[in-house]
Amino acid sequence: MTKKITALRITLVFSLLGFAFLAILVLNVNTGSVSIAPKEILRIVLSGKSDGSSIGNVIWKIRLPRLLAAAVLGGALSVSGFLLQTFFRNPIAGPYVLGISSGAKLFVGIMMVYVLRYVSGVPFWAVMAAAFAGSMLVMLFVLMFAQRVRSMAALLVIGIMIGSICTAITDFFITFADEANVANLHHWSMGSFSAVSWPNLHVISAIVFTALALSFMLSKPISAYRLGENYARSMGVNVKLFRVALIGLSSVLSACVTALSGPISFVGVAVPHMTKLLFGTSKPAVIIPGSFLLGGVFCMGCDLIARTAFAPSELVISTVTAVFGAPVVITLMINRQRRRGDD
């Protein structure tokens, strides 16, 4: 009886998310300094490329790439957060909270400021590599400390501290850098989905969707890991390999986001949690695709607000995601505390 209700709920929520995804996509293309009729949007989008008209250019060169970037990166951040939460068995773990995004930012920053002196224009793959290296380095630090602390709050504090150190070092370099480079870096580090080019988007999408598929393949061991490392091992999970896979995939996913649009806050924590609440389960085979979809919807929504709330001024994307995401984190902390008080 309840099995059927659960299955029905999952189908229903998926359809709802799919609908929301499409709706916000259309709304997003439609909204802006130039408003375009939905019929016109459909015609231009379906034609597959810009027809050369100004409206066509607005859609294909500005709005669509930005929008798709928001969708893909939002999804990537959410899945990255979910994998980290699984790894640390901690609902508030996430790439931003643990300082991993700041690590990526530090490395990208150093590269932008110092490499740009010698070569004009940094190739995107180099930014990507720097972001990944930074993510991994911070991840290693967090792992080192995480072995010694068991409490969720301590892990959070460690993440924030490491993040602050990275930000401090980044600021230090910025202080002594050329102004032109700084402007470049500053724009990037604020986090934004604007200025995403099609080729970069293609590269990132390929990586993100591969990582997403691999994460989905891990849903069985993730499922067992919900009972803890030792139980997972006793069921036959190769825990060492599994942990490496989790860390690798979540780092790749968050590095993609950071490389393309700078650090974005709280999405990785808030979205997986909201997804679990929506679906009423923590089954990874549902939560991985579910949080990818919801992450896309969430980020497109936040980007819409960032663009339009104080138009023509544009808000930093993290400002908007923080407004919605931070309360979720606080709620999680309070609930956890309360539950602990119970037992």
Binding site: P91, L227, M235, V237, G280, T281, S282
Partner: peptide
């Protein structure tokens, strides 16, 4: 064992892993 949104059936069913 601390779980999140897992029914007892799901926990027991992990044994079929």
């Amino acid at each position: 064992v601390r779980t999140e949104m897992m029914t007892c059936f799901e926990v027991a069913a992990m044994g079929r892993y």
